[in-house]
């Protein structure tokens, strides 16, 4: 029993192809990967929107002047 389909390396390498675990579940892995990617954009998009909305009102004028002077 091996997750990559080989229990031993006593093989002719010319006959060996894919050796990653759980071969046959590639489509499922792609679905999980795409969900992770889209989910990331969604989380980041919402967070940035909230952050920028809140940031509009937090500026202390004196500190902003210092930052502008700092260039």
């Amino acid at each position: 029993m091996s997750t990559i389909g080989y229990d031993s390396w006593a093989v002719d390498l010319a006959e060996v192809g894919a050796v990653y675990p759980f071969q046959g579940s590639e489509v499922l892995m792609v679905i999980l990967g795409v969900a992770f990617w889209i989910g990331w954009h969604r989380i980041q998009f919402v967070r940035e929107g909230k952050h920028l909305e809140a940031a509009k009102h937090v500026g202390d004028e004196e500190k902003i002047h210092k930052l502008l002077e700092k260039y």
């Binding site: 920028l52 909305e53 940031a55 509009k56 937090v58 500026g59 202390d60 500190k63 902003i64 930052l67």
Partner: peptide, 23 residues
């Protein structure tokens, strides 16, 4: 309305919160 940052944020800087916490 999701392309550009608000004008207030552009002036105070995108890192204002980080600078503020640091200072």
């Amino acid at each position: 309305g999701v392309l550009r940052i608000p004008e207030e944020v552009e002036l105070q800087g995108l890192d204002y919160a980080e600078h503020h916490a640091y200072e």
